[in-house]
Write a protein that binds this DNA or RNA. Structure first.
Length: 971
RNA sequence: GCCCGGGUGGCGGAAUGGCAGACGCGGAGGACUCAAAAUCCUCUGUCCGAAAGGGCGUGCGGGUUCGAGUCCCGCCCCGGGCACCA
């Protein structure tokens, strides 16, 4: 393709044609002017940014937000700004429809990617991060995005992370009051403990010493164990390849790090945890109030994984063995039990010798249970999580030699150790009901255990599975997990027989509770959030440790706790699973200890600093709040500003950002964490909104063709040429595939390149025209020219290409053209409201084509030209501003009223409608729009073609829909 | 296995249950030009036909309806998420 911006091609083109050079000149000029005039400055109700608020106070507000980017070293490719352009078009439309719109952009610059880039380039991350942000700002500015530049933040700025640390201290300073269903300050807990109105929560006071008798250190330990941010020795995801631990959300399904794809190992370590599990119910329940896609809601629900069931206690010689089950109704069918290899009761459950009659297959060939169990447990511990998850075909396990008692029917049931039961979920032990659980069925088959039917399968299931009605469950080909009526489920006190599953669950749970054998419970898959990282480039924790080893909060006056400069900030990575994490900050010896007065009455003391840093997610958990009040030094956001921009609209409303646009990849990471932080801030009274993001929209991904040579290596996509059906690189055929745009597939296209070849407005239109914003689509550089041509045609309607003089007129537009304009206005608005900008662009194209045909020699009336420019403005703002100025307007069109369609002009006098015979279109007739059913039927019968078709047929029925169609049913 | 999306021309995509394929790319032809580029105009789902016209067409099979891309039932395929979660 020819490069229209190259001089030898341009030479004999009309001087004033809209080409890349003209576009870039216009774009630069308008970007400068917007900046100089502060066009996109948005006033706040109060505080430093409140100037000008009175003028817009009566307008409705809108908060339009993008997921802010990582400032990566390679800069943006054209896939990145898809969502940014979408929100910009929408925000510009909202400004033109009378809204006070807040829209800005920040940078999520802490964390692994930034640190890894710094390591690669052997430069301090502060330096690379700032350079990358500057480059990205330049790239985004070039796209003409209407951001309020005063509100931009970077998470790495001490003025920003000062408040990240402050929020952490709020979390550290809180505990979850399960009765009140909300977080409360720990000071209130302490007061209640002192007053004796509350006892320490279970598990928070291991010594068992009553609160009044505890020494200060013991009391501190009890309080610390209640906090929403706490240190705990728990199995964590240790990633030696990155030299840090990771959260569950950062580990992929196959047990590797999401960043870098390094192996991850489960190991107990003492780390910071955030008690997100306290919010599990609310995080699920409040999804109902959010305008998010079902897909994202489903992913969050799935990740939180709420299961309702019962805890049931089985008596064993080693004491009570508790299990969690979602099917307490099948308790009578529990014919054996399984504990996870890591279960703490395994040693106690292991008998001294095999009971008489133990089948050989249960013993793994060992002479005694002790040998069999220890061999099995050792083997299981060596198997990686990956093995245990993928190897689901063959169930393994050994008998412990111990029998438990089924509390429902008093039967002795053998207890097995098997790795298909996971220590990390429920109690790490299960009651096995082989007749009604696929896994238990499989295990029972392997070990020849009894399979007892306690739910009667449906007849359909029996016949589908070739099972005979009334035959024993042991002859079934598989477990029956469906609904049905309970059978074989009665003892002297309770009978489930005849009850449906739901009723049986309720009945047996009530009985278990009455007998003290169990209780109804809710179980979650969600674990607490592992919050510390052994990396340099993150927020330092505002925490110090005293001699007792218990953490203490730094006073607010010590914030920000600035990240100390380091020459060598590299993490200690390893490929050794047994290596120990070593936070880089631990090497800054002059920083790790400090004498501080914590304001707790102890006076200045020497303390040891926490040397871990926060994960990169910390900064993104609250940035939407900081945009509201970015320069406030007294608080993280003034409550009045928060209430104005994000507060509930009516009682019961959850509040939040009006539109949040970003990629689907954050479904369970950022979006879950940010909701959690927001809810803590809500509980503590710092924000009025219960949820951060009222409406979420996931933009699609721009994919790109990638090409590989015969060895399978990607080749520079830009150098490949098409030859018929083949793709050639320097004459050699290469294969084509569609993939993610990026460096690794050598198929990235930079927005700068598109701006140079066509201008930013063309790029914006092309990105918006490809399809609905939520759809992924391939990038096709050759198709960009379509939008370029559109802008050239529009330009030509206004500007003489040869001498640059205006071409519009003051003529009265024809009725035809006026109607076309109003139909366009109506359709463009619809596309804007529904974020289907592709249809808006199509309608603008149609109007342009109409005007080109109607006014071939120029002279488009101003009454048409002006609305056309305004319709185009949100999509292609630079050319629209330029044409608006050339039409004689002095100020920016940013706050001009968006055109409104006149209803009466949308209705045509006459319409062409199809006439069908038996549902097939046979003719078309033109009828007055107001014609009733009888009139259009008559008109249809008068049509020649229709009359011929009806001539020798019997009309059985006529459907005539005024303004739509006529259908004759003949037969 | 379970849970979400999604299947419409060569491609991206349009269509409140009422004219399938708007708009754009690509392709074919033409105008302008010494020539080309750029620009503009015409055509472009598919099959039969010289044409007029007609048949067939929204992943597959049924159904509801005067009428289905759209609603219902059962499948197939593609993409994403979760996955021995009791």
């Amino acid at each position: 393709m020819a490069d229209p911006s190259s001089p030898d091609v341009v030479s004999d083109l009309p001087e004033h044609r809209y080409d890349a050079a003209v576009a870039q000149r216009i774009e630069g000029e308008w970007q400068d002017r917007w900046e100089a005039e502060g066009t996109f400055h948005t006033p706040n109700p109060v505080g430093p940014l409140s100037e000008g608020f009175d003028a817009v106070a009566d307008r409705p507000k809108q908060y339009v937000l993008d997921m802010f980017p990582y400032p990566s070293g390679v800069g943006l490719h054209v896939g990145h700004p898809l969502g940014f352009i979408g929100t910009d078009v929408y925000a510009r439309y909202l400004r033109m429809t009378g809204h006070n719109v807040i829209h800005t952009m920040g940078y999520d610059a802490f964390g692994l990617p930034a640190e890894q880039y710094a390591l690669q380039t052997n430069t301090h991350p502060r330096v690379t991060t700032e350079a990358n942000i500057a480059n990205m700002r330049r790239q985004l500015r070039r796209l003409g995005l209407g951001h309020d530049p005063r509100r931009s933040i970077s998470t790495t700025d001490p003025a920003y992370y000062r408040w990240t640390q402050w929020i952490f201290l709020q979390i550290f300073g809180s505990w979850y009051d399960a009765d009140a269903q909300r977080a409360r300050p720990v000071t209130e807990l302490e007061a209640e403990l002192d007053a004796g109105t509350r006892a320490p929560a279970p598990g928070t006071n291991p010594s068992g010493t009553p609160w009044p008798e505890l020494d200060p250190s013991g009391r501190r330990a009890v309080l610390n164990a209640h906090r929403l941010a706490y240190l705990a020795e728990v199995p964590v995801n240790w990633c030696p390849g990155l030299g840090t631990v990771l959260s569950n959300e950062e580990v992929t399904a196959d047990g590797r790090s999401e960043r870098g794809n390094f192996p991850v190992y489960r190991r107990p370590m003492k780390q910071w945890m955030l008690r997100i599990t306290a919010y599990a119910d609310r995080l699920i329940d409040d999804l109902d109030h959010l305008d998010w896609t079902d897909a994202i809601k489903a992913q969050q629900r799935n990740w939180i994984g709420r299961s309702t069931g019962a805890r049931v206690s089985f008596a064993t010689p080693a004491g009570a063995l508790d299990v969690f089950t979602t099917r307490p109704d099948t308790l009578f069918g529990a014919t054996y039990m399984v504990v996870a290899p890591e279960h703490p009761m395994v040693p106690a459950l292991t008998a001294a010798s095999w009971p008489d009659g133990t089948p050989a297959s249960w013993t793994a060939g060992a002479a005694a249970p002790g040998a069999a169990v220890s061999t099995y447990v050792t083997t299981a511990s060596r198997r990686s999580d990956l093995d245990r998850q993928t190897d689901t075909k063959e169930k393994t396990g050994v008998f412990t030699g111990t029998y438990a008692t089924n509390p429902a029917n008093g039967e002795a049931v053998p207890v097995f150790v098997a790795d298909y039961v996971l220590m990390g979920y429920g109690t790490g032990a299960i009651m096995a009901v082989p007749a009604h659980d696929h896994r238990d069925f499989e295990f029972a088959r392997s070990f020849d255990l009894p399979i007892v039917e306690v739910i009667r399968p449906s007849a359909a299931w029996l016949s589908d599975h070739g099972a005979v009605e009334g035959a024993p469950a042991s002859t079934w080909p598989d477990a029956y997990v469906g609904d049905g009526v309970a059978v074989n489920s009665a003892n002297a006190e309770v009978s489930l027989d005849g009850l449906a599953v739901a009723d049986a669950k309720a009945t047996i749970t009530a009985w278990l509770e009455a007998e003290g054998l169990g209780e109804g419970t809710v179980q979650f898959k969600l674990r607490d959030w592992l919050f510390s990282r052994q990396r340099y480039w993150g927020e330092p924790f505002p925490i110090v440790f005293g001699d007792d080893g218990e953490p203490r909060a730094l006073p607010e006056s010590a914030l920000p706790l600035v990240l100390p400069p380091m020459e060598d900030f590299s993490p200690k990575t390893s490929d050794d699973e047994s290596s120990e994490p070593e936070p880089p900050l631990g090497r800054v010896t002059e920083w790790t200890t400090a004498t501080i007065d914590l304001g707790d009455g102890e006076g200045p003391q020497e303390y040891r600093r926490e040397t871990n840093t926060m994960p990169n997610w910390a900064g993104s958990c609250w940035y939407e709040l900081r945009y509201l009040d970015p320069t406030n030094t007294a608080t993280f956001v003034d409550p009045e500003n928060e209430r104005y921009w994000m507060g509930p609209r009516e009682p019961g409303d959850v509040g939040g950002v009006d539109l949040y646009v970003g990629g689907v990849e954050h479904a369970v990471l950022h979006l879950l964490y940010a909701r959690f932080w927001h809810k803590v801030l809500f509980d503590l009274g710092h924000v009025s909104s219960r949820e951060p993001f009222r409406r979420l929209f996931n933009q699609g991904m721009i994919q790109a063709y990638a090409y590989r040579d015969e060895r399978g290596f990607p080749v520079e996509a830009a150098d490949v040429v098409k030859d018929g059906d083949r793709y050639l690189l320097a004459g050699t055929e290469v294969t084509r595939e569609l993939g993610k745009m990026g460096k690794s597939l050598k198929n990235a296209v930079a927005p700068d390149e598109m701006c140079e070849r066509y201008g930013a407005d063309t790029l914006r239109l092309y990105e918006m025209f490809g399809g609905p914003l939520d759809q992924s689509r391939p990038w096709d550089t050759t198709a960009v020219v379509g939008m370029y041509r559109l802008l050239q045609r529009i330009w030509r309607l206004f500007v003489d290409e040869d001498d640059g003089t205006p071409r519009t007129s003051f003529d009265e537009p024809s009725e035809d053209t006026t109607r076309a304009l109003h139909r366009t206005i109506d359709a463009v608005r619809d596309g804007m409201e529904t974020l289907r900008f592709n249809t808006s662009i199509a309608r603008i194209t149609e109007l342009t084509n109409h005007l080109t045909a109607a006014y071939p020699d120029g002279g488009v009336p101003k009454d048409i030209a002006e609305p056309l420019v305004l319709l185009l403005a949100p999509l292609a703002p630079h050319i629209a501003e330029e044409l608006w100025a050339r039409l004689g307007h002095e100020s920016s069109l940013t706050y001009q009223d968006f055109p409104v369609a006149q209803e009466d002009l949308l209705v045509e006098d006459a319409v062409e409608i199809p006439v069908q015979v038996n549902g097939k279109v046979r003719s078309r007739i033109i009828v007055p729009v107001a014609a009733d059913a009888a009139a259009i039927e008559t008109a249809a019968r008068d049509d020649e073609k229709v009359a011929a078709l009806l001539a020798d047929a019997t009309v059985r029925k006529v459907i005539a829909v005024p303004g739509k169609m006529v259908n004759f049913v003949v037969g």
